[in-house]
Computed example of a mutant assay.
Amino acid sequence: MNDQQYDQFLHIHTTENKPKFPRLAHYYPYEPTPYDVLDLCFDKIELEKNDGFVDFGSGKGRVTFYVNYRFHISTVGIEMNENYVQEALQNKVQYSMEHNLQNESVRFLNAKAEQYKVQPTDNIFFFFNPFSIQIFRKVVNNILKSYQKNPRKMYVMLYYPSFEYIQFLRNETHFEVVRDVLVSNDSTYNMHERVIILEYKEMIFT
C-alpha cells in the first residue's frame, strides 16, 4: 500500500502536508514518516502490551495511530502546533469509530516536547528529527530523570537522525545502538535515511 492507501485503511488523513507556521529556530517543520519506513522500523523491535509509546513531534498523528493499531498499546503524540493537534484529534474520532481501542488509548497533547512530563509507563520514544540538538538534549534528560525515579526497559527510536543526536546519545548517555538499518532507496544514497534503535543500558558496578 502507498501512503494514501494506508491512511484510508486506518481511517485517518495525514498525507497532505501544508505548513501551518513559519520555521522556528529550534523546531523543524512537520513531515509525516512514510509508512514503508514505519513497517521497516517496527519490524525490528517487539513491543509488549504494557509498553507506552511517545512520538515527539507527532503532527497529525500518523505514527501514533500506526503503533496503536499494530501493537494494541497506549500511545501519545506530543505536538506544539495547535492546528496539527486539532487535525490529529479529528483523525482520532474516525479511527476510534473503526478500531476498538479496548484498554489502550491514543492521546495527543498540545505542548513543546521539552515541556512534556514523562510518565512512568512511557518507555518507547520516537523521533523523526523534529527539533535541534538543544531541544533533544532537554527531552532526553527528562526521559532519564523519569528513569531514575522508575527504572524500566527504555528505547529511543530515531528516523533520519542527525549526527548530533547520535553523538549525544552515544557519548553522554547509556543508550546503546541495538539496530541500525538503512532505508532502501534505489535512486540515491543518503546515510541519514536510516532507522536507529537504541536501548538504555545503565552500567551497574559491583
Rank of each mutant, 00 (worst) to 15 (best):
R62K: 15
R70N: 11
V63C: 05
V85G: 01
F53N: 13
N83I: 09
N81G: 03
S58A: 15
F71V: 07
M80A: 09
D55P: 14
E82M: 11
D51G: 06
V85M: 02
T75P: 11
N83R: 11
N83V: 06
G52P: 12
G61C: 12
V85E: 04
Y69W: 13
I73N: 05
G61W: 07
F56M: 10
N81I: 14
R70A: 14
V54K: 05
F65W: 11
N83A: 14
S74R: 05
F53I: 12
G52D: 12
H72K: 15
N81F: 02
E82K: 14
V54R: 00
F56H: 10
F53V: 12
F53M: 13
F56Y: 15
V76I: 15
N68Y: 02
T75D: 06
N83T: 14
Y69T: 09
E79Y: 04
F56D: 09
V76F: 05
R70L: 15
D55K: 06
D55C: 11
E79R: 02
G77L: 01
G57L: 03
Y84C: 03
F65S: 09
Y66N: 09
R70H: 15
G59Q: 08
F65E: 05
V85P: 06
S74C: 10
I73C: 00
G57M: 01
F56P: 09
D55M: 12
F53W: 07
M80H: 14
R70G: 03
Y69L: 11
S58D: 10
E79F: 01
F56C: 11
N68M: 01
V54E: 07
E79M: 00
G52M: 13
R62A: 02
V76P: 04
V63Y: 03
T75C: 15
M80G: 00
S58Y: 04
R70K: 15
F71R: 03
N50I: 09
I73W: 06
D55I: 12
E79K: 03
H72F: 11
K60E: 14
V76Y: 01
G77E: 00
E79S: 07
T64G: 09
K60G: 08
N68L: 00
G52W: 04
N68D: 10
V67S: 07
G77N: 00
R62D: 11
Y69Q: 13
V76H: 03
T64I: 14
T75W: 08
I78Q: 01
V54N: 10
I73M: 02
E82V: 07
G59L: 06
